[in-house]
Amino acid sequence: MADIYYPHDYLPLPLQSDLSFKPVSPFLRTNLTSGRARQRRLYTSVPTQVPLKWFFKKQGMAQYFEAWYRDRLTDGESWFYMKVKTPLGVELYKCRFTDIYEGPMLLAGKFWQYTATIELWQRPIISPEWTDFPDFVVNNDIIDRAMNREWPES
């Protein structure tokens, strides 16, 4: 089956409704009779749930969103690719709706709002090799400013 993409050319990016990411725990914890516990890693790739809101300025956008959800995603069953803002910036992620959206809700007599929770295929974190270079990760804003100032685009 071909990959499905969110229609970025026709619909706006969603906004995080409460700005929280909820990753699934990657380990199993077993309580011991001594009162201590044993923990072990089960997975290296775990999904993360993100609550989102969509605001559509046009009635046609709301109509298209609902039809896209029904027809392209088979009523939310299918995985798709969408840009989502995370601590890594706005990136393309593999996503899936955890349940049907809520809405439409008419706001201010002209905007249509939908809310839903999606799950990202994996946690939005930097790749493992970057943990060897904490200065570059923690101070990446300084490097970015220097690059843009010293080597601006022509």
Results as ranks from 00 to 15, higher is better:
K57H: 03
V24G: 00
P104W: 01
T48C: 09
T33W: 04
I125Q: 10
R72Q: 09
Q63F: 09
D9P: 06
W68E: 03
V90E: 15
D75R: 12
K53S: 15
L15I: 14
A62P: 01
Q122C: 13
G76M: 05
Q16I: 08
T117S: 10
S78K: 14
T48W: 00
L19C: 06
F111A: 04
T30C: 08
L15A: 12
Y5W: 07
R40V: 07
P14H: 06
W121P: 08
L13N: 02
T44H: 07
A116R: 00
S45G: 01
D9H: 13
C95P: 05
V24P: 00
V84H: 09
R70H: 04
A67W: 06
P104Y: 04
Y93D: 02
V84E: 11
L92S: 08
T98L: 05
Q49D: 09
G76N: 04
Y6S: 11
W68Q: 02
T44G: 08
L92E: 15
S17K: 14
F80Q: 05
C95Y: 10
V84W: 09
A67L: 13
Y43R: 11
Y64T: 03
Y93H: 12
T117N: 13
Q39A: 10
W112A: 04
G103H: 00
V90P: 07
S25C: 04
K22E: 13
Q16N: 08
P87I: 12
W79P: 09
I4D: 09
T98Q: 02
Y101P: 03
R72V: 05
R96W: 04
M82R: 11
R36G: 15
D99I: 00
F27Q: 10
Y10V: 12
P104C: 05
A62V: 03
G89Q: 10
Q122R: 14
A108H: 15
T74I: 10
Y114T: 08
P7K: 11
Y114I: 12
Y93K: 06
P23W: 00
R123C: 09
P26W: 02
L88R: 15
T115W: 03
L88G: 03
A62E: 02
L73F: 02
L19M: 11
Q59D: 13
I118R: 01
A116E: 03
K83R: 11
Y69I: 03
R96G: 00
R36Q: 13
T117V: 15
Y64N: 01
K58C: 02
W54I: 02
H8V: 12
I125E: 13
V46T: 14
A37K: 01
L15G: 07
F111Y: 15
A37L: 03
Q16G: 02
K58Q: 12
R72T: 12
D75V: 10
H8K: 09
P51S: 08
P124R: 05
M82N: 02
T74H: 07
T86C: 04
T115V: 05
W79R: 14
T44Q: 12
A37V: 02
T48R: 02
L106A: 03
T33H: 11
I118F: 10
F97I: 10
S20N: 08
I125A: 07
Q113H: 01
W79K: 14
G60Q: 15
T48P: 00
Y69S: 02
Y114V: 09
M61V: 01
